[in-house]
Design a binder for these strands. Sequence first.
DNA 1: GTGGTCTAGACCACG
DNA 2: GTGGTCTAGACCACC
Lengths: 124, 124, 124, 124
Amino acid sequence: MYLIDHQSRTAVYEQLTEQTERLILTGILKPGQAMPSVRALSVELAINPNTIQKAYTELDRRGLIYSAPGRGCFVAGDAQARIKAEVLENIGEVEDMACRYALAGVEKSVFVDAVDKGYLKNGA
Amino acid sequence: MYLIDHQSRTAVYEQLTEQTERLILTGILKPGQAMPSVRALSVELAINPNTIQKAYTELDRRGLIYSAPGRGCFVAGDAQARIKAEVLENIGEVEDMACRYALAGVEKSVFVDAVDKGYLKNGA
Amino acid sequence: MYLIDHQSRTAVYEQLTEQTERLILTGILKPGQAMPSVRALSVELAINPNTIQKAYTELDRRGLIYSAPGRGCFVAGDAQARIKAEVLENIGEVEDMACRYALAGVEKSVFVDAVDKGYLKNGA
Amino acid sequence: MYLIDHQSRTAVYEQLTEQTERLILTGILKPGQAMPSVRALSVELAINPNTIQKAYTELDRRGLIYSAPGRGCFVAGDAQARIKAEVLENIGEVEDMACRYALAGVEKSVFVDAVDKGYLKNGA
DNA sequence: GTGGTCTAGACCACG
DNA sequence: GTGGTCTAGACCACC
């Protein structure tokens, strides 16, 4: 389910949260469903449990999962909606990136082509 | 010329390289022009000289500036072109971002609106 | 009678003791009345019997219920009085909370309004 | 500055965040001021640096402090305002507590007396 | 079994 | 020097 790149400069626990987001958005992780246990995932990915825990804590804080000590962690019912809300809040990053490309003299059509490709990947 | 935000999470030396890029693209820093000296900039911005040096080294590595030992650093003649080439090389990041937004269920029109806004900021 | 929120961060056994207190105070559970059996409650709430037992043990320790081996658990005659005594003993927590709000700069009237609302809920 | 109770049931890192809040509200920690370094505090309190770090991370997340890697952690300019906002958001806890006391049969005057005492402590 | 906290000690990037 | 991440291993409360 998860794929960790130890060479990447992005922290392992961040890779975990990002990939969890994707799994939720793609519906592989469904609302109410149990997340893999901290220990189980730690052995499966050969990662220290503390690192998994850190990722889970972050996801819990963002309301994407909730943890029930003694029972496990579960995907929140409104996880997808929350992610979308978070993403929309940061729409400014898109503007910034476009601005950078414009400043560099990249034609808008080139930029939009890339956007189209990205959107096609998800059949939208 | 430079504006450092010490509260920002992006490293100071990165803020320097990014802003230098902008200064080159906007033509404020012209080809052949001398960059501010490390010492001068370090006092002006109240920043450790090592940090300035690190930024300059990075810019040098990317061929955006060149250092003439004993005389200082100067903007490369093809700096603008190089930046544009670098940006185009990373066009995949645009695709990735679009893909993320698509996955989150953000309508393409919303995304494109943000792109338009970004492009307008530079009068393109 | 009982309503367990598995998403809550408060432990299940604590939810049980708290709700039992409320049931005693509201008179739904009367002095001498039998508590639901551990087994019955465990199936009704789909909760591990150990968890129910832990709650009952705690209530017993506080003298709110007593267990008659072989016959079950029963509400103590002075349960209501005991709860009130316990609450009064911890009146310091109210002071502490008020202190916190004062320190944060919350006007006393705002605080008292909330208190009024809380008291009204019980028709006092 | 800090006082840790290792017997307390509240986690050490939480004691740290709570006490930091108090220090900010009382003005002992002023906006822009540097927080004690993770290492320094860890030796002063005889606590593992990771635990301090955890507290600082939490404070950073809540916007009460900001961390500048390589320079240190600093109190946010709007830290006091943020704390007040957080507190006001949880005003429901006051209502709940009042409700509990009302249910237990504690006279409102007794409750309000405790509130008065709490508010007096801060000369409000 | 589960998640949550803490310690110890290491390494990295940044200034 | 600073904060940030990761590992290893331990202990706790809860279910």
